[in-house]
Design a protein around this nucleic acid. Structure first.
Length: 465
RNA sequence: CGGGGUGUAGUGUAAUGGUAACACGAGUCCUUUGGGAGGAUUUAUUCCGGGUUCGAGCCCCGGCACCCCGACCA
């Protein structure tokens, strides 16, 4: 039995990851093994997402895992931000290296070193590269999928002629993240700009998508950085423009990781287990045959072969567990649609179907069965529920004592902020809440929730993962 | 890196310093199958090293590992 969400959310999460067979702890501290069921989700995310990236004219490549220390140091802010969590290679075989090699905590430096060789003319721009790789960050407190020493991600890197182009690209990358989160993962996200204290080390600014989890905490699920010319100057990435002038490129970088899977679990899951949206579920449908003997088994087998399941990822569970056991097991694993077929269904030419999100049992005729329609409905319902959840847990607050009360309960709090990082810091210390996002569209004005100064900026506060 | 805690079967727990127990899981066999089936049977050098004691899972010392709370974590 799974721990209830309301009883201990962290425990519920850990148990679910293990019991649903998504991942397991490895013998290496802070590192996890992604098991086939969890990896299948990642593969589906990759497959769909890769298409979207390529539609933007981005090409996949692969750069080294090792980054010379001198590269990391070239951009001052960058090294400052990442130094505390870098793993270092100091020896090759038994021989000490002249220069330490960092195991990539992110690949800006090793990629831009190459950009400086490859980009010479305005004809080479824009230059757009992506890689699907592993990343190592030596985190103090790891959690399955959410923060592990090694994780998998996608990182896109682009170089442009003008500041404007880079700005547009930064937003475009964020837009595909947002679309993907909503259309595929069924998670309603909040998009906006990060404050200076939360931005990427080395960026001019960072945009992000943030998602509200069922415990009221917020998870950052994807970021897109406008790097300006910071790295271009550090790595000497110059091009000759049409007027034959040497200019530095304008750059962006953006990434999403296996953390998304953690978000998927905590945004949709319930006391019965995972709820996976059909578009990325490893199995979209599971068929549970219910039979007492070989004769019934054969009848059911031939009945199943009549089902229209073209282009559907499905599994028929012929294991010798009892039906009840199978129901619970596949609910735990979050399979969107379950079809139960026993002698009754065969005889009456019907199907018993249960959607994972609603758990309502329905009996329909074989003729009226339209699996694609059902899966589309489930996909839509999951997103609708997510939207409702965000709406019901977003609070507009104007005074600080109420702010503290609401933040403590969990959820998103929208308040005015004067823009001063001191107010941001004080709020963090007093409430543990951080500014997750500054929405792009601002209309009203009001008073800073902390200092009371007049402000035109409304921001989202929340406790974060 | 600071503060606290815990290491017992695959998992979760129990055992005033005195025969290591229970549940689940897993294996084998039989009976079962419409919401986590039943019976029989099998499943342990109590994290590692030392010490105290007639006797240590329990007490003491050292190590290692893990967990929680901080700090840290675009």
């Amino acid at each position: 039995m799974l721990t209830k969400q309301s009883q201990d959310f962290a425990k519920w999460y850990n148990e679910l990851v293990l019991k649903a067979d998504l991942a397991d702890y490895s013998s290496v501290r802070g590192c996890m093994v992604i098991k086939p069921y969890g990896y299948a989700i990642w593969e589906n995310i990759q497959k769909e997402f890769d298409k979207k990236i390529k539609e933007l004219g981005v090409k996949n490549a692969y750069f080294p895992l090792f980054i010379p220390e001198s590269f990391l140091k070239k951009e001052a802010e960058h090294v400052k931000g990442f130094a505390p969590e870098v793993a270092w290679v100091t020896h090759g075989g038994n021989k000490k290296l002249k220069e330490r090699l960092a195991i990539r905590p992110t690949s800006e430096t090793i990629i831009y070193d190459m950009f400086s060789k490859w980009i010479q003319s305005y004809r080479d721009l824009p230059f757009k590269i992506n890689q699907w790789v592993n990343i190592v960050r030596w985190e103090m407190r790891p959690r399955l999928f959410l923060r592990t020493l090694e994780f998998l991600w996608q990182e896109g890197h682009t170089a442009h002629e003008t500041e404007k182009e880079a700005e547009i690209m930064t937003k475009k990358a964020l837009d595909i993240y947002q679309d993907f989160a909503q259309e595929y993962l069924g998670i309603s996200v909040i998009s906006g700009k990060k404050t200076d204290s939360e931005k990427f080390a080395g960026a001019n600014y960072t945009l992000s998508i943030e998602a509200l989890m069922k415990d009221g905490k917020v998870l950052q699920m994807g970021t897109s950085h406008n790097l300006g010319q910071n790295f271009a100057k550090a790595f000497n990435i110059k091009f000759l423009d049409k007027q034959e002038k040497q200019k530095y490129v304008w750059q962006t970088s953006w990434g999403v990781s296996t953390r998304m899977i953690g978000g998927l679990i905590m945004a949709h899951g319930d006391d019965k287990g995972l709820i996976l949206p059909p578009k990325i579920a490893p199995y979209q449908t599971v068929i549970i045959p219910i039979c007492k003997n070989a004769k019934e088994k054969n009848l059911i087998k031939s009945y199943i072969s009549k089902l229209e399941l073209k282009d559907v990822r499905f599994e028929v569970d012929w294991s010798d567990q009892t039906p009840g056991w199978k129901f619970n097991e596949w609910e735990l694993k979050g399979v969107p649609l379950r079809i139960e077929i026993g002698p009754k269904e065969v005889k009456e030419k019907k199907l018993t179907i249960v959607s994972r999100d609603s758990l309502k049992r329905e009996v329909i005729s074989l003729k009226s069965f339209d699996v694609n329609k059902i899966l589309e409905d489930i996909q839509k319902r999951i997103l609708d529920n997510s939207k409702k959840f965000v709406k019901n847990n977003t609070f507009i607050i104007n005074n600080f004592s109420e702010f503290k009360k609401i933040i403590n309960k969990g959820g998103l709090v929208k308040s005015f902020w004067c823009g001063n990082s001191k107010c941001e810091e004080k709020i963090k210390q007093e409430t543990k809440a951080t500014i997750r996002s500054i929405p792009f569209k601002q209309s009203e004005s009001g008073k800073c929730i902390k200092c009371g100064n007049v402000s035109k900026t409304q921001v989202f506060f929340a406790k974060a993962y």
